[in-house]
């Protein structure tokens, strides 16, 4: 799959299969195209796929709108979560949860049930109730934003999750809470693409497969040991192999 943003080709032939229940770690140099790949999968309209296809559970993702992909069970934890002034977290979540329910042919949640679920899921990532009355991400610290991403994931119960540097900006305790929260949410069919620069996240969320993306291509794929080697040695040895 090839993709461009702002007229510039960023992904130059990515070939990747993630099976049910698998965790794939995606590592790579800054600017390699990791976030681009994530955005393309979830359908950010700013990105254009110029060649190739993306299939999710047999469905042609590229033919689906962003929100339809979400309804199908795809979730992305944003590298830089967006602020939405004037829209409270509670209303935002209510709209999101009920939109998905509607797409699945379910009744909207009763208000009391919705608030009960909110309460339960908040506990999972230890996010404060007072943040729920604020506008989405407004005045949230970097760490709170990342927790908020996983909280939203908990509310929406996706089957395929992309974590785009969810660990960056988190202290050790917050990292543990967020990663353990993610693990609790996993079911047998949940698969994930975890983008990170650090082994410390992969200590909690153990990958089945590790990929290295450099300059818009997956240049190396291996097991968990590949992440450890990168942690110790960086990417230079891979670049040397390519040269």
């Amino acid at each position: 799959m090839h993709a461009t943003v702002g007229g510039k080709e960023i992904l130059k032939g990515v070939d990747l299969t993630i099976k049910d229940g698998e965790i794939h770690a995606l590592m790579g140099t800054n600017g390699a195209g990791k976030s681009t790949l994530s955005n393309v999968i979830v359908g950010n309209p700013a990105y254009e796929v110029t060649e190739g296809s993306i299939t999710f559970n047999g469905q042609d993702l590229l033919a689906m709108k962003t929100e339809e992909r979400a309804h199908a069970g795809i979730f992305m934890s944003f590298q830089a979560p967006i602020e939405i002034p004037g829209v409270s977290m509670t209303n935002f979540m209510r709209a999101a949860v009920n939109a998905r329910r509607q797409a699945l042919g379910k009744e909207p949640l009763k208000s009391t049930d919705f608030l009960k679920i909110m309460r339960e899921k908040r506990k999972l990532v230890e996010i404060d109730q007072k943040l729920m009355n604020r506008s989405v991400n407004e005045g949230f610290s970097g760490g709170e934003r990342k927790r908020n991403e996983i909280f939203q994931m908990a509310m929406l119960e996706p089957t395929f999750c992309i974590l785009d540097e969810t660990d960056s900006g988190l202290d050790v305790d917050a990292l543990r809470i967020v990663a353990e929260g993610f693990n609790k949410l996993r079911t047998e069919e949940t698969s994930a693409m975890v983008i990170t620069h650090y082994q410390r996240l992969l200590d909690y969320i153990k990958p089945d497969v590790v990929h290295v993306l450099i300059d818009g291509k997956i240049v190396k794929t291996g097991g968990p040991e590949l992440a450890l080697k990168i942690e110790n040695e960086g990417f230079d040895w891979i670049k040397a192999e390519l040269a």
Partner: peptide, 8 residues
């Protein structure tokens, strides 16, 4: 985009 990614 953020909202649509959440299914809205």
């Amino acid at each position: 985009f953020y909202m649509r990614q959440r299914g809205i």
